[in-house]
Design a binder for these strands. Structure first.
Lengths: 208, 208
DNA sequence: TAATTAAATGAACGTTCGTTAAATTAATAG
DNA sequence: CTATTAATTTAACGAACGTTCATTTAATTA
């Protein structure tokens, strides 16, 4: 046998991506073999090389794609001007965007170490761009005096770790709705940076 | 050649543990070979089997050892009675204990997936015992009304993720002292659970 | 319909993997 | 001094690894 009836390159490429993402997240990049991916796609290992020249390229492409999506979505959704509102938008965005992409998030936090230098530089750069968005919000909040922050870098790291951590325990269909979880995390993030809820709510109300 | 002059089994076992820990943390369990470990120890791969019957046993033993140490140290150091004081002690303990064990922490959060069922059950059980310590503090804080918490499970996960995240960025010899970092994280943890610093400080002062 | 391009196969490459077994040397005990 | 035990080596096992290549069949184009 060779070419299969009804086979379509773009479909196969998509399957390879989907399967690789799931397997890399579950077992780790190094622990997953090309044959394992191929078998779940329903194809021979050699067929994958029609789409990706190296195993490493699959990982790079998955991470690149995820970080690009994250960055552009975050620039679209975080539109407020007030630093406190922006921080809340950031927290809510991060939960909302990541909670339905557990495998991508896991990969981009855990498999940077599996990247060769070139790919690593690319992905690390995208990640630091995302971190810069949050840090800029925090610096604005310090300037305007509404946030009580010792060190914006430490605060940014703490906030990101806390938010990203949702993927270690959340599974869809659980006890809590995504909206509830978003609310709880947003509240904890704001409070952790010295923003007292009532203060903020009152200000909001004053605007109306 | 066979036995080497001055060779000592306990020393070699220790070296194997040290090297394995470092390599597993850097490259991931699956990506590290027995020969790679052996070469850094200064021994042939087959020599490792004198000490560990399977590669998997090295990982299990490292994780077991870390979690045991974490649990017993946490029971020793968290001695306060007041829930707020206990939460602060927990936060400080977690930072202090983990910040100097980055490899162990990384392993126990990332390589559970590399464990076969038996080892996984053991380690997961130890981890949930540690989480239970924190959850119990939070429930006490809710009961006595000093913490404003929507859901103790979510709060516990958020706190642990935030604290454990310190290992993703902290490197010794950096800009900030460990004590400063401990202070900042403790403050953020308390605030995130609705404990206003001044409230707590005043209460503390009132006791004196 | 014939020629070309796309999508896949199956076999094979040299390497490396975890692991085992027998042999060898150093240290210790009688 | 001899026998035993501890620590390690060398050699080898079959299996699995990522990857390459020639081949085959399906779909598309001329």
């Amino acid at each position: 046998m060779a070419r299969i009836a009804g086979s379509d390159g773009e479909v196969t490429r998509g399957e390879i991506r989907k399967v690789s993402l799931s397997l890399f997240a579950q077992y780790g990049y190094a622990a997953v073999s090309m044959r394992q991916i191929a078998s779940q796609v329903g194809v021979q290992a050699s067929a994958i090389y029609q789409y990706y020249p190296k195993k490493q390229q699959i990982l790079v492409s998955l991470l690149q794609n995820h970080m690009d999506g994250l960055l552009s979505a975050c620039h679209e959704e975080i539109t407020a001007e007030d630093p406190v509102d922006r921080l809340e938008q950031f927290a809510r965005f991060h939960i909302r965007y990541n909670i339905n992409r557990p495998d991508e998030v896991f990969l981009s936090y855990m498999e940077l170490r599996s990247l060769e230098p070139e790919g690593f530089a690319t992905i690390a750069d995208l990640r630091s761009k995302y971190e810069a968005v949050l840090k800029s919000i925090l610096r604005d909040g310090i300037k305007s005096g509404v946030m009580k922050i010792d060190d914006p870098h430490v605060s940014a790291m703490a906030i990101l770790a806390m938010l990203t951590g949702v993927n270690t325990w959340y599974r869809s269909g659980g006890r809590l709705s995504q909206k509830k979880i978003e609310n709880m995390y947003a509240s904890m993030v704001l409070k952790s940076q010295g923003i007292v809820p009532s203060d903020h709510d009152e200000k909001e109300a004053a605007h109306v």
